[in-house]
Amino acid sequence: MNIVIIADTHLPKKKKSLPFKLVKELEDADFIIHAGDWQTIDVYEELIHYAPTTGVYGNVDDNQIKEKFDLKSIVEIGSLRIGITHGHGRRKTTEKRSVELFEGDGVDIVIFGHSHIPVHKEYDGKIVFNPGSPTYKRRQPKYSFGKLELSEDGCFTLEHVFFDESESEASK
């Protein structure tokens, strides 16, 4: 199973469309996870054309997104329990807020966004993952999103896909 993980798309405010590098991955996706700051429901409407899509709302999302998604979600894919949140709030770091939100929920992976900083590490027996942003890298050297590949035997790989501006658009 091929799962694409994104966050902080901020469309159409930061970019007018999803970048080419991401679209190429979406074409092969079996499932899509969005960790908030979609900006508008149009992003969701575009993503569902590629694969079933779930996610959470972020701090800049409009009311249509907030009505469709929760602040926190847990999805089960194969043998994995995946916690999803945007991570915005007060006090502590985005990462700590996100991890604490799922304490006691028995998740294997915590996916969050908000900071636009790619993170992939183990913390307290869980994998903590922020895909970064495919459209608004802030001070990061590259744009990014995540890929989770899950095999039938329950093994999985989780990685970032990094790209620069030249890979954002299709060749003309």
Rank of each mutant, 00 (worst) to 15 (best):
K13E: 14
H10K: 11
L22P: 05
E149R: 00
H120R: 14
H86F: 12
T93L: 08
T40C: 10
I127S: 10
V75A: 13
I111V: 15
V128M: 04
K172V: 07
H160K: 07
G146P: 08
I33C: 05
D42S: 11
R81C: 03
E169L: 11
D42N: 12
Q140K: 14
M1D: 13
E149L: 02
L71S: 10
C155R: 13
D28Y: 06
H34L: 01
S115C: 03
I48V: 15
F162K: 01
E167L: 14
T93D: 02
D30T: 02
T85S: 11
G87A: 04
I65H: 01
G87T: 04
I77S: 00
S171K: 04
K172M: 02
D124S: 12
G132R: 14
Q39R: 14
Y50P: 11
Y123G: 04
V107F: 00
I5C: 02
E149W: 05
N2K: 14
T135H: 11
R139Y: 12
F129S: 03
S17I: 10
K137W: 06
R138S: 02
D70A: 12
F31D: 08
E149N: 02
G58Q: 08
S166E: 15
E103K: 15
V99R: 03
K142Y: 09
D28F: 08
F162G: 05
E27M: 12
T54I: 12
A51S: 05
F31T: 15
S133M: 06
K147G: 00
I77H: 00
R91V: 09
F156G: 01
G132L: 05
G78S: 11
V60D: 07
N2Q: 13
Q140I: 00
K21F: 07
D70I: 00
L150F: 13
E95T: 15
L150D: 14
I117E: 13
I82M: 06
V161I: 14
F69W: 09
L148C: 05
W38L: 06
I127K: 12
F112S: 02
D8I: 09
K137N: 04
E95N: 07
I32F: 01
D124Y: 02
F102N: 03
S79T: 12
G132V: 08
I82G: 08
N130R: 02
S171Q: 07
G113H: 09
Y123V: 07
K21N: 07
G113S: 12
K24L: 09
E25F: 09
S17K: 15
Y143K: 06
N59M: 06
T40L: 07
G154P: 04
H120L: 15
D37R: 00
S73K: 14
D153V: 04
D42K: 08
F156S: 01
S168G: 15
S115R: 02
F156C: 00
G78H: 08
R97Q: 07
H10D: 04
E45Q: 13
E159G: 01
E25L: 03
F31V: 15
N130Y: 03
G36V: 15
D8T: 13
K137H: 10
E165W: 00
F112K: 03
I6M: 05
N2C: 01
I5Y: 05
A29P: 05
F163L: 01
S79F: 10
M1S: 10
L80Q: 10
T85P: 02
D8R: 08
L150V: 14
P131C: 05
V23C: 09
